[in-house]
C-alpha cells in the first residue's frame, strides 16, 4: 500500500510537470500579448519595453519556463500582472468557495444520476425507463449556461425560492450545484443503468433470489455495490470536465471561486493566474483519480493496488 502510494505520488508529480510545460508553451505561442494588456493602449513603445523586461517576458521560452518552475518548487506561484497580488493568495482566497460548489455539484450529479440509472435498470423496457433515458439525453445535451439561466429564471426570478446569485448561505449553493450536476447526471444515469442491467443478469443475483432474499436487499446489498464500481472510476476522470463547467456556472451565478478568477485572467492574458489555476485543477484531477483508485478496492476485494 505504501509502495503503491509512493509510486502514484511520483507519477502525479510527473503529470503536473507535463501539464505545466504544455500550458506554459501554449501561453507562450499565444498571439495575445500580456504586456499590451498591462500597459494599456496609450502606452509608448518604451513603456511597453520596460514592462516586458521587468516581467522577464523578453527572455527565451526555456529561461522563462525555468524561472517559473524554480519559483514553483519554492512555493512561489508568481504575481498577477494586473492585480499585483500573489497568485497563491488569490487562489487560496477563492478555493474554499470552489471546493464547496464542486462537492455540492458532485453530490447532485451522483444523487440524480445514480438513482435515475438504478430505477431505469429495474424498469427496463417500460415507459418509465424510456422517459428517464430521454431525460438523461436532454441533460447531457443541454449547454450549462442554458441550464443555469433556466434554473435562475424559474427558481430565482419566477418562484423566488433561491437567491439570484452570490455566496454565503446554504440556499445560495442549491442552484449553481444543480446547474453543475445536471449534465453529469445524464452521463451517470446511462452508465449506472447499463452497469446495473449487467449485474442483474449475473449468476450471484440468481443465487440471492434462490436464497429467498427480499427484492430490496438483493438490489441494495448485492447488485448496487457491484454496479457502482465502474462509476467510481468515472468520478475521478470527471473532475476535469467539472472544472470546465465551473468557469461557466461561477460566472453566471457570481460565485466567487477560481472558475471566475480563471475566466477574468484568460480575458486579460494574466499568465501567472492562468498557470496557477491550471495547476490547481490538475492537482484536483490527480487527487480525484487517486481517491477513486483507493476507494475501489474497499468495495471490490478482488482489486489489488499494485
Amino acid at each position: 500500500m505504501v509502495a503503491y502510494l509512493l509510486r502514484r505520488i511520483v507519477q502525479s508529480v510527473l503529470i503536473l510537470l507535463g501539464v505545466s510545460f504544455i500550458t506554459f508553451l501554449l501561453l507562450y505561442v499565444l498571439p495575445a500579448d500580456p504586456v499590451r494588456q498591462i500597459a494599456g493602449r496609450s502606452a509608448t513603445a518604451q513603456t511597453v519595453q520596460n514592462i516586458r523586461e521587468q516581467l522577464g517576458l523578453d527572455q527565451p521560452f526555456f529561461v522563462q519556463y525555468w524561472r517559473y518552475l524554480s519559483g514553483l518548487v519554492q512555493g512561489d506561484m508568481g504575481r498577477s500582472y494586473l492585480q499585483k497580488t500573489e497568485v497563491s493568495t488569490l487562489i487560496a482566497a477563492r478555493l474554499p468557495a470552489t471546493l464547496l460548489l464542486m462537492g455540492a455539484g458532485i453530490l447532485c450529479e451522483l444523487a440524480i444520476g445514480l438513482s435515475m440509472g438504478v430505477v431505469a435498470a429495474l424498469r427496463r423496457g417500460q415507459t418509465s425507463d424510456q422517459a428517464l433515458m430521454i431525460a438523461s439525453f436532454v441533460a447531457v445535451s443541454a449547454p450549462q449556461f442554458v441550464v443555469s439561466l433556466l434554473l435562475l429564471y424559474v427558481f430565482a426570478v419566477q418562484l423566488g425560492w433561491f437567491p439570484i446569485g452570490g455566496y454565503g448561505t446554504a440556499s445560495h449553493v442549491v442552484l449553481p450545484a444543480l446547474a453543475l450536476g445536471i449534465m453529469g447526471s445524464g452521463w451517470y444515469s446511462r452508465m449506472m443503468r447499463s452497469s446495473m442491467i449487467d449485474v442483474l443478469r449475473q449468476d450471484f443475483i440468481r443465487t440471492a433470489h434462490a436464497k429467498g432474499l427480499t427484492r430490496s436487499r438483493i438490489i441494495l446489498r448485492h447488485a448496487l455495490p457491484n454496479a457502482i464500481l465502474p462509476v467510481i472510476a468515472m468520478i475521478g476522470i470527471d473532475i476535469g470536465i467539472f472544472m470546465g463547467g465551473l468557469v461557466v456556472v461561477e460566472s453566471v451565478f457570481g460565485w466567487p471561486g477560481i472558475g471566475q478568477l480563471a475566466w477574468q485572467a484568460i480575458q486579460r492574458v494574466d499568465i501567472p493566474i492562468i498557470m496557477g489555476v491550471t495547476l490547481v485543477t490538475a492537482c484536483a484531477i490527480v487527487i480525484g483519480n487517486l481517491l477513486a483508485d483507493i476507494i475501489a478496492p474497499l468495495i471490490d476485494p478482488r482489486i489489488k493496488l499494485r
Binding site: 450471484f204 443465487t207 433470489h209 434462490a210 436464497k211 429467498g212 432474499l213 455495490p225 457491484n226 476485494p301
Partner: peptide
C-alpha cells in the same frame, strides 16, 4: 414464494465461480 425459496426448496447452480457475490 420467497419464504419457500432457500427455506424449503434450495438450489445450487452450475457455475460456482460466478454464483457467489464477489464483493461480500
Amino acid at each position: 414464494m420467497r419464504d419457500i425459496r432457500g427455506n424449503r426448496i434450495a438450489m445450487i447452480f452450475q457455475e460456482p465461480m460466478t454464483s457467489l457475490n464477489p464483493v461480500l
